[in-house]
Design a protein around this nucleic acid. Structure first.
Lengths: 339, 339
DNA sequence: ATTGTATACCAAAACGTTTTGGGAGTCAAT
DNA sequence: ATTGACTCCCAAAACGTTTTGGTATACAAT
């Protein structure tokens, strides 16, 4: 049978109150009693019933993470690394992690509602913010604490960590321009996604800074998968005057683009330069290795998680909003323009 | 303030008992009362306190998944796809998913203990079974329901879904042999991991079936990452008489091996054949596209999750143990032996 | 008149904690 | 002797559900 405080009380001859306090290390219990209670507790193999605790304390020691999954072949290294970061930090701070996977859309908000209404979690980690983010509205309205990985449209204010995608893409464009490239294309995800918006903005500003004109026909929209990188790159390469460099807004699409170029016999890094964004582990081992921007996803996951827990505990945050500068990692997928 | 049954009772003039029963659709409540209660409940915005329910019912409607994370750059597409499968199925069956990420080792068992002892979950999904799997022992001893993705050493009996890795690697070896390869190497993870054990066994049996002798110097151990595929492939290629084909036991190591071969100027698929196992999305877009074995991870995740929930509900399983045949996907990383 | 059987309801107990509000004893200062 | 401060302890309430073990009424069958 399951051991409860009552059993320990009976065994030690103390009251339930005292047992509870002894186990929680209150000062008003003598050290002799504390010792006795602890000994008996471990003899009987006592473990507190977490739901009774939560019912009483009205908190959950659990944080929620809802992962938007795009289709059944969902397999974005982005999330596994971030998840590891959030999960490990949560565990080390004594919090459980309740994960829900939902396709973006109507049911996604439902997942938030069911977690908030049932008071299943103390707060949320929000990932991949969107331009009009119903999740942000929902959480702000309900007053649930949350920390986002990613910003939102200007005027909404909430704690976040984000990478400076604009800065990142500017450095990519500078890099490509310094290699002599003038026709630089971009494969960007829908600007609905805030990070895509910032990255694309960086691409355009970068072009301006190096004195190149943005050409709308060289900016295509992809959906973050290799497949779409492949398809959009094919469209770019079919243009009468194709680009000599393609800056993809994430590594997966860059791989798709590389694949498309190679199918046409182009040598990536020589005939054409292709860059990514994220520096997923695969980037180092692709052929050719991918020039990309490094985002420390594991650390970001940890940061976001820790900020959230501070918030839940009612502590003030050192920094409400953090913007990280991604670092350009130059590998062989980008090279001098062949003249 | 939070609305409770008591509030509804007061508002409707009924007792708490009747309100509870009305909401749970017991027959012993008149339909008029049911209607009244439901109306008032939704007017007041009632949502049950989940912890009170769980305390009373002594169950959690939550399943646990503990992901072994190898290091901070943990980023295995294997897990994101599996997680999506488990998570989506759990949600559709009304279960929450509690995820814990732990490095394999001592703390991993602790994670199981804290979930079982605190009775935080009704059961577990166990992934990547190991030869002497302390987790299996722990769960069997505690009597917690669980379903594994992967088998264990012969005599232990528990419900699982697994892919037939032995069969899979045999088909790979047959494929390579049919292309004329005679010196075929294998990069396998530690045989501590059951799936690695079966895959390696398939490799060896496969060699025997096509009349080739296994050469121990051609079997190296990796740790599932690209880096280790790269390192081990380098060792193989440095041999006085290097292999003409390398069968890696997962896709990530295959990519590492491809990278190593390409660094030496070898054309993969011509000068050397390299194969993987898993068919992660990247396999289609690598250069060259990877010959590998397809595992339907998303579906497997769903199956495992559903079996577990049946088990938790005390229903009998249609099949306790399922072995799936992986399908060989031939792409360009394997080709005819150059003579 | 009694018994049986539905139907519709309810008070109180139970789940296992933590917290509230207090009590009893000891010791020292007035 | 009284007061105050301190230490150590406890009974009971509270958290919000579900379940147990009833009751009261109405109606039909004996």
């Amino acid at each position: 049978m399951v051991v409860t405080l009552k059993d320990i009380a009976k065994e030690t001859g103390k009251s339930i109150t005292t047992v509870s306090r002894a186990l929680n290390d209150y000062d008003e219990v003598s050290s002799a009693t504390k010792e006795l209670v602890h000994r008996v507790a471990s003899e009987l193999g006592y473990t507190p019933n977490i739901f009774a605790q939560r019912l009483q304390k009205q908190n959950t020691d659990t944080i929620g993470l809802i992962i938007p999954t795009y289709g059944p072949r969902f397999s974005d290294p982005f999330f596994s690394e971030l998840l590891a970061g959030v999960g490990n930090r949560a565990a080390s701070l004594g919090y459980d992690l309740l994960v829900s996977t939902r396709a973006p859309g109507d049911y996604e908000i439902e997942a938030y509602c069911s977690m908030t209404q049932g008071r299943r979690v103390d707060g949320f980690v929000l990932v991949r913010t969107r331009r009009k983010d119903a999740r942000v509205e929902c959480l702000q309205k309900s007053g649930y604490p949350f920390v986002a990985f990613g910003r939102a449209e200007e005027n909404i204010n909430f704690p976040f960590v984000d990478e400076d995608g604009t800065y990142g893409m500017k450095t990519v464009v500078e890099h490509l321009a310094s290699l002599g490239h003038q026709r630089i294309a971009c494969i960007a995800p829908s600007s609905e996604l805030m990070f895509a918006h910032y990255r694309l903005q960086g691409f355009i500003e970068g072009l301006a800074e190096v004195g190149l004109e943005a050409d709308d026909s060289l900016i295509l929209i992809g959906d973050l998968t290799q497949r779409s990188g492949y398809e959009q790159a094919n469209k770019l390469l079919d243009l009468p005057s194709p680009p000599t460099a393609i800056a993809a807004c994430n590594d997966l699409m860059a791989f798709g683009a590389i694949s498309a170029a190679q199918e046409r016999g182009l040598v990536v890094g020589k005939d054409i330069s292709i860059t990514g964004f994220d520096n997923i582990p695969m980037a180092e081992y692709s052929h050719p290795p991918l020039t990309t921007l490094h985002q420390p996803l594991y650390q970001i996951g940890g940061m976001v998680c820790e900020m959230l827990i501070h918030l839940i505990r009612g502590e003030s945050l050192e920094r409400e909003q953090t913007l990280l500068k991604p670092e350009l990692i130059i590998r062989q997928s980008s090279g001098l323009l062949r003249s």
